[in-house]
């Protein structure tokens, strides 16, 4: 059995960590224990270095033969910036965490159902392994993929290979149709199930729409986390007025029951601290203040 210990001879070796879009990176790591048991819907927590933040990342792909785990992440702050600098190995990869997708667990029930998966931004990454799993198990699925512009579009060929129809929309119309994922969904709304992954605000709008259209919807939530095992409660959400922990009860929930407004407000909790550190990392000590978040008035 592979052994990873803190002084390990056998760390989480990096095979690839390179940009595939604007500020978007593909990270491939050897992680046999994670790959052996992971299923679509689950996530991992990675640490670049011993003193790094624990970053929850969705799983983009996994290969049980090679033990390679693939993740796609966007540079949004200091910790993801730090991650881009790692070339040899990661300090830690913990997982798989959370519950597998309900559809994966009850795949027989969904045979013959019309499923649409909606991915926004890098939220498209975890759409891929789920769609692939569905395809391999005889389900058919359409994918709606929304991004700001063409420079942010990734893995298009891979997506095409696992779905019946891929609909791309961009905010500026630089690729695919100009519009939002909700516009596309309005156009092709004949579905039994919608699975949505992306920013909390995007998922909120999709869920509002599918509620109107009466399409059952699963949303994959991505709140702030620390341990990812139910220990701290940082990731708590209100789902149908009950407190749920995204890390152990989710990350996927009935999108029509999630209180998105509360979830969005909770995401802002560390904005100041994170913004300050990111600026410092980007600009070093040359930052002269006035940005409104660094604390220098």
């Amino acid at each position: 059995m592979a052994c990873y210990n803190e002084y390990g001879d056998d760390m989480y070796k990096i095979l690839k960590n390179e940009p595939i879009g604007e500020k978007i990176y593909l990270l491939e790591v050897e992680a046999p224990l994670v790959v052996k048991n992971c299923l679509p819907g689950q996530f991992v927590i990675v640490m670049a270095n011993e003193d790094s933040e624990r970053i929850p990342l969705t799983i983009y792909d996994y290969n049980r033969e090679t033990s390679i785990l693939s993740m796609i992440y966007q540079v949004v702050g200091s910790s993801t910036l730090e991650l881009t600098k790692k070339k040899e190995s990661l300090f830690s990869v913990a997982g798989p965490l959370g519950k597998p997708s309900e559809v994966v667990t009850n795949i027989e029930e969904y045979k013959g159902k019309k499923i649409v998966m909606i991915g926004g931004g890098v939220g498209i990454a975890p759409v891929y392994p789920q769609a692939k799993y569905f395809k391999n198990h005889g389900l058919s699925v359409d994918i709606i993929y929304g991004a700001k512009n063409k420079d942010l579009l990734i893995i298009l060929e891979e997506l095409k290979s696992v779905c019946d129809h891929l609909v791309v929309v961009t905010d500026d119309g630089s690729n695919g149709k100009q519009g939002l994922v909700t516009d596309a969904l309005k156009e092709y709304h004949d579905y039994d199930l919608c699975i949505v992954m992306g920013s909390t605000i995007m998922m909120k709008f999709v869920c509002n729409l599918t509620k109107e259209l009466n399409i059952k919807t699963i949303a994959s939530m991505n709140p702030i986390m620390v341990d990812g095992t139910g220990m701290c409660g940082a990731c708590r959400l209100l789902v149908g007025n009950e407190v749920k922990f995204a890390c152990v009860d989710g990350p996927e929930f009935d999108g029509h029951l999630v209180d998105f407004d509360a979830a969005i407000k909770r995401m802002n909790l560390y904005k100041e601290e994170e913004g300050r550190r990111y600026l410092k990392d980007l600009e070093g000590d040359t930052h002269s203040g006035g940005c409104g978040i660094c604390g220098d008035k």
Binding site: C3, Y4, K36, A94, G95, P96, L97, T229
Partner: peptide, 12 residues
């Protein structure tokens, strides 16, 4: 032998 990052019930 200490195996870190191993969530029994998930990882194994």
């Amino acid at each position: 032998n200490i195996i870190l990052n191993a969530v029994v019930g998930k990882t194994i």
